[in-house]
């Protein structure tokens, strides 16, 4: 069984909790980035929570997911630990990637997370490859790639979907259409009305769903998963959604106005799903508030953990390049250092 499924009351509550967890994680990550606590840069998922949560609710824990540069929500949806994620954002040794990856490269291959990815369109070939392994070894799994609307214009996405379709691999491609590829509107980057129309080029099903509706996303991905497991090949799903924040924190957003953002906020995925659960008698306002408080505490704990965690030792920069280390790198790792460790840089 999946961690949660939208088929049960408990599962629906868990889906809501995860959406809240994503929003709280990314709101906090944005604040701590703006404080200067988190180095580098961050791309926030706020507004798009229903896509990640609806998608991963339809997957099993052993399924693979290849993510994007906007990957925090996918990681939480897939069940990754917010503490270890936050530690990674803080560049700490205990983070998912020991501080080597940061926001854009969080990965946990054992848990099926093939990585957030700094290259637009790079995830689909990796998911096609994971689907190839699944097919080759007759495993009972699927591989799913997220991509933004911008990724649909990338050549390697076409190559990946074509390969998966031609070989009938158990793959699913979820296009998160958040209306802008970086700062350029979707209609200025693509010639089709719906990005799912591109599925016709591969003779695979292509559907466009409301990405602000977690149930709609869940149903589309569930159907795609059944199809993939039956050996009928991949499905391309476009989820129409919206990011409330800029492309990256610090984006001054000259390409849109407040009114547009407000229009989408009126259809907020968390708010509407919460209302639906209350209407169905599956949730009370008080329970929701309790859930919200728990989520805030979880993320506050994650930040405290991340702040308190140790930074990596500088010489760990030389680890993990290869399974079988090479002398070219080892010579730096093993040099005596003034601080009693080893010293990087110039080997003279």
């Amino acid at each position: 069984m999946s961690d949660y499924t939208l088929e049960t009351e408990a599962g629906r509550r868990e889906a809501l909790r995860r959406m809240l967890l994503i929003r709280e994680f990314d709101t906090t990550a944005g604040e701590r980035f703006n404080d200067g606590d988190i180095p580098g840069f961050v791309h926030l998922y706020i507004g798009e929570e229903a896509v990640g949560v609806g998608t991963c609710g339809a997957l099993e824990p052993e399924d693979y997911v290849a993510s994007t540069h906007r990957g925090h929500g996918h990681c939480i949806s897939k069940g990754l630990d917010p503490e270890l994620m936050m530690a990674e954002l803080y560049g700490k040794a205990d983070g998912y990637c020991n501080g080597k990856g940061g926001s854009m490269h969080i990965a946990d291959v054992e848990a099926g997370m093939l990585g957030a990815n700094g290259i637009v369109g790079a995830g689909p070939p990796l998911a096609t490859g994971a689907a190839l392994t699944i097919d080759y070894q007759d495993r009972d799994q699927v591989a799913l790639a997220f991509g933004g609307d911008g990724s649909v214009a990338q050549g390697q996405v076409h190559e990946a979907v074509n390969l998966a379709a031609t070989w009938d691999l158990p793959a699913i491609f979820v296009i998160e259409n958040n209306q802008y590829g970086e700062a350029t509107p979707v209609e200025k980057q693509h010639n089709v009305d719906n990005l799912s129309d591109t599925a016709g080029a591969y003779d695979i099903p292509g559907v466009t769903v409301d990405g602000m509706d977690v149930t709609a996303v869940y149903e589309a991905v569930s159907e795609a998963r059944d199809r993939a497991l039956a050996g009928d090949g991949p499905t391309l799903i476009e989820a129409e959604t919206y990011r409330y924040r800029g492309h990256y924190e610090g984006d001054h957003e000259p390409y849109r106005d407040e009114a547009e953002i407000e229009q989408w906020r009126e259809r907020d995925a968390i708010e509407s799903f919460k209302e639906r659960l209350i209407e169905r008698g599956e949730l009370t306002e008080a329970e929701f508030e309790e859930m919200q408080a728990e989520v805030e505490e979880t993320i506050a704990d994650a930040v405290a953990y991340a702040k308190d965690a140790d930074l990596p030792d500088p010489e760990q920069a030389y680890d993990d390049m290869f399974g079988e280390p090479v002398p070219e790198i080892q010579q730096f790792a093993s040099r005596p250092r003034a601080d009693g460790g080893t010293e990087g840089g110039d080997p003279t």
């Binding site: 998912y96 990856g101 990965a107 291959v109 990585g115 290869f322």
Partner: peptide, 8 residues
């Protein structure tokens, strides 16, 4: 991938 993922 190996390096960015901390060897995982």
């Amino acid at each position: 991938m190996r390096y960015m993922f901390g060897g995982k």
